[in-house]
Design a protein around this nucleic acid. Structure first.
Lengths: 98, 98
DNA sequence: TAAATTGTTCGATGAAAGGCGAACAATAAA
DNA sequence: TTTATTGTTCGCCTTTCATCGAACAATTTA
């Protein structure tokens, strides 16, 4: 199953995670992914260009917040709940319910 | 008791809080204040200029994270635990223990 | 093969943010 | 009153970051 390289960001530091979340679009993406389980980029484009969203997903991946699986021509993005909760207990819950 | 104006930032939004925390110096200040109850600016200056720290405290105040009480010539900074916990339950705990 | 779909990558641009020194304000102490 | 102490404010500079269009890559479909 093809996918991006997620080997490095398995242990991101807190600053990287906070910086990734400190953006309105990325926070919205995380909140959406927490509800729908997965989504491709197109589903999360508002009226923004694809290149912008691609950048935001890259930041989220590098922060270890999102995992992307390539399925055919689509990139399915998942919120990495278990990994985030293991590394930063309570953080995701606090952010999602605020 | 003289102090800064903390009337407005009593209900900051999540983005403002995340942006305030997404800086290494400010995160360090918050972590320090969680241990010592209060501290003046001088106690938290590393070798940085005062103007830089003053700026960071302003950001923390505007995000509702820190309260500053003027006592004589010193400005005593407190972490606003209760208010933060009330508005963003679990957030502070998650960040401080990570 | 050819065309369409889905994202990525690249380069340029503009805005936001941090860092710093100098001048200023307020209080305390000599 | 004069000096010292503690932060703030201001202006400038630099760096970082988001945004966007265009070109490219990979896969699916006609």
């Amino acid at each position: 199953m093809p996918s991006f390289d997620h080997s490095a960001p398995d242990a991101p530091d807190l600053m990287t995670v906070l910086r990734a979340l400190a953006d309105p679009i990325r926070l919205e993406v995380v909140q959406t992914l927490s509800r729908v389980e997965y989504a491709n980029c197109a589903a999360l484009l508002g009226d923004r260009p694809k290149s912008s969203m691609s950048h935001h997903f890259q930041v989220l991946r590098e922060a270890g917040l999102v995992r992307t699986e390539i399925q055919g021509v689509q990139h399915l993005n998942f919120l990495r709940r278990a990994e985030i909760d293991a590394r930063f207990p309570g953080l995701l819950a606090a952010i999602l319910q605020s």
